[in-house]
Amino acid sequence: MLDVLWGTVLVPALVAAFLLVAASRATRRGLPATGALLAGLALAGGHLASVLAIAGSPAWPPVDARSWLFALVPTSTLVAASAVLVGRRSFTLVTRISWAVLVPPLVLAPLARHAWGPWQASLMFALLAATLVLLAEAFERIGTAVRPSAFLAAGAGPAALAVPLLVFGASALFGQLAGALAWALTPLFLGSVVSREPGWWRGLPLPLATVVVLMLGTGAFFAELPLPAAGLLASGPLLAALAARRLARRLGPKGAWIACVALALLPALAGIAVAWVSYEPPGAYGY
């Protein structure tokens, strides 16, 4: 139990908090791209330190979903920081789409090789790529329209709810890693509540979307997580983003904050119900 607490809670939270302090200092010195990069690295570092603590060192070169996390998540922070450095909206969108096109074939390569025909593989690549771009855009829109803390809560909440979702989907490891993501996001969320520095969080949407998509994709494609359940969890932040501007106008900052986070969480709860019905938890055999 102590091992689980250490790897899933303390390691991601402490590493992310440490790197976040460095990020805030860089932002204060007027280095927004460096701040965005370090904020992204705080998330990536916290999460990957947890992966190391829970599952040991990954294979290199990457061969499976877990080892791809180590290659893709830090790289996504560089991609996100480069977009912040350039500062153009069109460039950000192009980098996100390019990134999203690159990631699925790498992670889903074993299924494309062993199990899927070219059409099915193309469809699944497109599905995952679209989810990644839409999630990154959704997180950014929530952060801009409401508050950065709303986007981080809209990421951390579903990540926490992904724990039972993935455990029901027969991957306790990725369930733990979802918990670690939620805990890596916690210091970032607290930082966003107290920070008055603008823009430091803009390096976070792409790495966060990458981790979420990798975990849900792994659960759905490599374990037993029902695809509709994964889709429901991913749709929460999308719904919140669609409504964010209208909610901000009608409900004011606090009301919009609460409504956005609720919208992000409700579909995830429905996803847990779907996963529960289609796959009972593995408690009967107790591992």
């Binding site: 199990a115 991957s171 490599f222």
Partner: peptide
């Protein structure tokens, strides 16, 4: 569970 990425990762 044994076929999942926790153990054999049978699809990979």
């Amino acid at each position: 569970h044994l076929r999942s990425p926790d153990f054999f990762d049978a699809k990979t």
